[in-house]
Amino acid sequence: MALKGNLHDFSITQLLNLIHLARKTGTLAIDGKRSAARASFREGKLVFAQTDTLDSRLVGMLVKVGKITPDQGKKIPTNKTDRDLANLLVQAGLLTKTELDQMVRNNVKDVVDRMFALTDGLFRFEPNVLPEDRLWAEPPINLDGIIMEGTRRLKESERLQEEIPNLEVTLRFTDRPDAKLRNVNLSVDEWRVVSYINPKNTIRQIAQANSMSDLQIRKIVYAMLQAGLVEVVQPAALPAPAAVPGGRAAPPKAFASNEEKRSVVNKLISFFNR
């Protein structure tokens, strides 16, 4: 009988612990509110994982690590399984077995990292069901470290929730960032968030626009707050939300009229002419 339930009642960490201790073989499927994920295990060790927010096909992994471009990826025939394709690439000397194994392991770990962000949704463990045509982590990944990391994340998540309890507030760039901005390096995800920062967009809208979980957005916003890059606009000062149809956050713009736009442009011209 399949093991099933809701993550509300039994967390990812607890599930992994169970699979690890019982040395289970099979596939865990999770259907969260915002995303779905699957992870497969052989005798309690992780061999495969995929989520709808990260391409776990071989072509997707090759693009991600920069081995091929997205355009080249599109030209690869889709009628071969990942295993067949991997064999061809290794035989042709385009990829070493070590590189392949490392890439797959990293991808599986990335997916499981994302799974920890799922706190709600239905799960189901199908015993002895394994994705035979997909690439497995070689050697299988021991769950000890992953569970420990997950527990640490859970604590981090709780702490972040205390730091940023309300995702309905908005952000703005701080007026005095220069002292703290030196040597700040931002990831692509952080830049995605930066491009939506505007007192008209709530943190939740920014997360939705970038398909980020609550944990991911809290982490990024917290780092930016700490770096002095942004500050929270208190709800009392909020203008009307600027969401556009579809729940997407509005981009930083807004001219109520052409006159207003003209005035802004003229102001900028005067400024640069000084």
Binding site: S195, P252, V265
Partner: peptide, 16 residues
């Protein structure tokens, strides 16, 4: 670089 061109459209929104 081309591989970051997914950022372009995001950035272009609302530009003067």
């Amino acid at each position: 670089q081309k591989r970051f061109d997914f950022m372009w459209e995001i950035l272009s929104e609302g530009m003067l």
